[in-house]
Write a protein that binds this DNA or RNA. Structure first.
Lengths: 246, 246
DNA sequence: TTCAACGATTGACTTGGATCAATCGATTGC
DNA sequence: GCAATCGATTGATCCAAGTCAATCGTTGAA
């Protein structure tokens, strides 16, 4: 009886670990896979890793052998220039993939740091390649994910190249809101996991400029800010800030 | 005899078209493939397309079904916002791939315009996926190419996010020089195919700023500029401009 | 509970690059 | 060959965001 109970617990743990049982499967790599295909993916995604707030998931220059799916938590990726300048290249949340940049040189080209205690699924890349040679749907979906990353980066280039400070921050907040929504969280109320400085680095602004823009948005009634807690009061207002007529 | 001659000419034309005979194969998709594998790629890359200077290879919103390898010529890609702002997202030269951004949504997300009379090889994407299910090397190399695009975009984000005007232009010139070198052209002397405005859009600057930076570089003896003709006189000098001590 | 460290806010001032404008030089179409 | 058009250069001025600095609020460790 005790034996039975133990084995129940073990299989429960296994089930909990599997992609096929993950509540992020509609956002993550398993998207569009059949039940049977997903079970094969489960084998691949065997190792979980916990990353504490502030710790690196990987560092630029380290050998690349796996990509990571975020199961819970929040990350930032960034590159550091020799002269000390650094640039946050992205913020990633549950259901998103990390490490795609490492494929090109077989070394990670950026740092990935957890902004809160997080858990990731490691996906050994060579095994992902083998499996996607067998499962068309997985192959195609993986290509789409990589391509989406390129499109996302073009969006950031657009933002950095053509937008002014307040437009950038409005775009940033709307993007976060939309991603939280897709994960079943409130579109209008959330905690920022990153500092003003990190937001500024991502948006190509100084932290003071970010802070002033937040204050301005608040004065104008578009949002309510209290430190890292954000409430969006007027989505349309924020959207209009992105396309100023002046 | 006449018959024989004709058939010779036809097969010559076929050979000329093939990847296996393309002098860009060391830069392009066929990289690392065996002789036999390359012959299979030849079947795939059947259609060539000429694109005249100023013409679109594809437009944002069009259906995506193929990626393009540039055989000769020069392209720019860019996105256009509803309010008229547009952003050049890249310049592509012979041996580079175009259209990877379209995979994600099955529609092209940017415009690709030839900056000089060009020729491209169309690679039907679904057939590339089938073939790369069979040829590991092709699959892996294609993943590397996509990943390299992501890394490149992160470099541009770094540039737009942290560099000042003259650093951006210096980085741009050094990048062009390096890519021309890889193609067997002079590292120190080349013609720009794009206008000051297009350079400015790519670098997040106004055309006047680009022009002034060129003039400054010339005054300081780093380069010689005459319209679109550039000679780099002092590579080390340009590099030092990228990491100013101040 | 207190203090130290860190992040955020706000103010005063400076500046790099944008904007507006005039001119010049090169293509290109007639 | 000549005007017309387009791209590049240069100058004068302006402003958005950066810089420097002081203060405040939170958080977390002793």
């Amino acid at each position: 009886m005790g034996q039975h109970k133990l084995s129940d617990e073990v299989s429960l743990a296994v089930i909990k670990k599997a992609c096929s049982n993950c509540n992020l499967r509609e956002l993550c790599l398993p998207l569009c896979l059949s039940r049977e295909e997903m079970l094969r993916l489960d084998d691949l995604v065997s190792t979980r890793r916990r990353v504490r707030r502030g710790d690196h998931l990987y560092r630029a220059g380290e050998e690349f052998d796996a990509i990571y799916a975020i199961r819970s938590g929040f990350f930032k990726t960034g590159v550091l220039l020799s002269d000390g300048r650094d640039q946050v290249t992205g913020f990633q949340m549950a259901g998103e993939l990390l490490g795609l940049d490492g494929i090109s040189t077989e070394r990670h080209t950026c740092n990935a740091i957890a902004l809160e205690d997080s858990e990731v699924c490691a996906i050994p890349f060579s095994r992902l390649e083998s499996l996607s040679r067998e499962i068309h749907t997985l192959q195609h979906h993986f290509h789409k994910v990589m391509s989406r990353e390129i499109v996302r980066d073009h969006g950031v280039m657009m933002l950095l190249g053509t937008m002014r400070a307040e437009e950038r921050l409005a775009a940033f907040l709307l993007n976060l809101s939309q991603r939280f929504t897709a994960r079943g969280f409130s579109p209008s109320e959330f905690y920022l996991r990153m500092t003003r400085e990190e937001i500024g680095s991502y948006l190509g602004l100084k932290l003071e400029t970010v802070s002033r823009a937040f204050s301005r948005f608040q004065e104008e009634g578009h949002i309510a800010v209290q430190q890292k807690h954000i409430r969006i009061l007027n989505v349309a207002g924020l959207k209009s800030l992105m396309h100023p007529s002046h």
